[in-house]
Amino acid sequence: MSTTSQPVKDISQQRVGQLVADDFRAAHIFSQFGIDFCCGGGRSLASACEKADAKLSEVEAALLASAVSGQKEDSLNQLPVDQLIDYIEDTHHTYVREKAPLLIEYSQKMVRAHGEHYEEIKPLAGWIQALIEDLVPHLMKEERILFPSIRAMAAGEQVNGCFGHIGNPINAMEHDHNDASLVLEKIRELTNNYQPPQHACTTWRVCYASLAEFEADLMQHIHIENNILFTKALSLAE
């Protein structure tokens, strides 16, 4: 499953333990599907899927998506700082601004329609509101303060800021990221990992699906900033 491995369509007879050894991200996927890659690591992927009652095609698709994501991350690592910031703003910041109003709209509709009958609805709407209210100013702080300073450092220019070392605003942004992750944990708990109940209406189902997508994008967003951009910025400051 690594960038140099065989195409995913050919891995059905590879041992699951070896797939994890080749790329640790496979372990997360196998865990999601209930596939034993420890004691059962000697089984072929096809055999392991059969034992776990998991669809081989779905597992292979997840492995392929992970491999593509890994290749994308490798390419992001190679980007100059200014282009990496452009990517974050154009891709992830834009996504948050587009999706955030929809999440609030869906959750408020759920409160009006179901808030008096299902106890999880009102708290869920509150946590969604809190997440968005934290994220939007966070994006602005990055775009107006941190990112311009990193761009200036990369260009060898004077950094105009009263925050001292670049590590100080980076620490503040990482603290915000941690807070967002904690809120997502609350949302995941209230939504039963984004699994709507059988009686859920269309808006309810769309809301949960949108939240799952939003979390996936936000986790990738945070990962790119914390582990790629901020690492590069701190190296520039050395």
Rank of each mutant, 00 (worst) to 15 (best):
Y208V: 06
H138Q: 08
H199I: 10
R15A: 15
L229M: 10
A26G: 09
R188M: 11
M140V: 15
M153T: 07
S75R: 13
V59R: 01
H92R: 10
E60G: 02
L76K: 05
F30G: 03
T191L: 14
S235W: 06
P197S: 03
Q14M: 15
G126Q: 13
F30A: 00
D23F: 08
V183C: 04
F230V: 07
D53S: 14
S47F: 03
H92V: 08
S66R: 01
E157Y: 11
G41R: 02
Y194R: 04
A61C: 10
A237W: 14
Q195L: 12
K72Y: 05
Q78D: 13
P196I: 03
A46Q: 15
K9Y: 08
Y95T: 00
I88H: 00
I166P: 03
F163N: 11
E119V: 11
F33S: 01
K186N: 09
C162Q: 07
A130N: 08
G17V: 02
P197D: 09
L184W: 11
Y194I: 04
P137Y: 08
I170L: 02
P137M: 05
G115M: 11
L76W: 15
P197A: 03
F163Q: 12
L79K: 13
H165C: 11
W204F: 13
V96H: 10
G161F: 06
D53E: 13
L236A: 06
K232Y: 10
S66E: 03
N171V: 06
Q220D: 12
W204D: 00
G164R: 08
E73K: 09
H114K: 04
P148A: 13
K99A: 09
S75K: 13
I222Y: 02
L229C: 07
R188K: 15
K109Y: 06
H175P: 07
L63N: 05
Y95V: 03
A67W: 11
L76C: 07
G42Y: 00
H175V: 12
F147V: 13
L131P: 06
H175R: 14
F33R: 04
I228D: 06
I228W: 00
N178L: 11
I145V: 15
S2T: 14
E143K: 11
A100S: 15
V68G: 02
D90K: 15
A172E: 09
E185N: 04
S66V: 00
Y87K: 14
F30W: 04
